[in-house]
Amino acid sequence: MPIQSRNFKAAPMIILLSLLSLPLLIMCFYLIVDTITNTQPGTLIPDEITFEHWRFLWQTTENSSANIWRVTLNTFVFSITTATTILAISLTAGYALSRLNIPFRRFFLSGLIMLHAFPTITLIIAIFLILQTLGLYDSLIGVIMVKSALELPFGIWIMKGFYDNVPWEIEMAGVQDGASRFTVWRKLVLPQVQPGMMALLVFSFLTAWSELVLPLVLAPGNKSQVLSVYLATMLADESSIDFNLMKSVGLFYVIPVIITYMIFQRKLMNIYGGGTKG
């Protein structure tokens, strides 16, 4: 029974880790419980079940004038467009950097690493001014462009790593078989980096979903608001803070993330594995 004995050996570690993460677990538990119950001050046991904390779904609340469904749609548009933009550009740029003999290749590569490490917040004023000049301030397109641009170095770098692992011979063989470089890339190379594609797509979607600073500064208006900003505006209004309402919005905000993780968690692991399996 090797599996069982291994489990027993790990038991002390599991208990220790459980104890350490207990506060988090309790918070998560109450996050869910509090959204559908009311609890009297001074006690931990809820005394009534209610759906009033979810009222933001069917009416505008006192804290925010934006419509939740509009905001949710915005968030999806923002996240999906950003993720696909990042993927499309990373796929092509990563290939070029990995394979093509382009001028200034080394310069681009070191530039990528530097940009990746660059703190976004320092750029925010410049970006704000640029967007305002271009007339893209307070629009989804503007934030999408900015967010994609800022995530690109990471995406390109990851994809380049995946391309680097595809054997040269496969491409040479494709060319010998009479296929153009583009066909070789699309039919022979892309399938090899598919794990990377999936991982990058999901990863970009999640980072865009959780992005707060850029939309808050660049698209704060009701028309282009996203969920993170919606939640933040609730917090900012100190006069009438309703914690249970906030918890409900928070839960609503996090559900797509959890679902995405559950579906794609194995593929997401690939992003740091970076290998192809035959």
């Binding site: 011979e169 496969i170 040479m172 063989a173 010998q176 153009s180 090899q192 035959g278």
Partner: peptide, 19 residues
């Protein structure tokens, strides 16, 4: 270019398309 030469190549590691 390679594509227009009618040449068949067997590579050392065979370079089969794994997918």
């Amino acid at each position: 270019p390679s594509q227009k030469r009618n040449v068949g190549v067997v590579f050392q590691n065979y370079a089969l398309y794994p997918h």
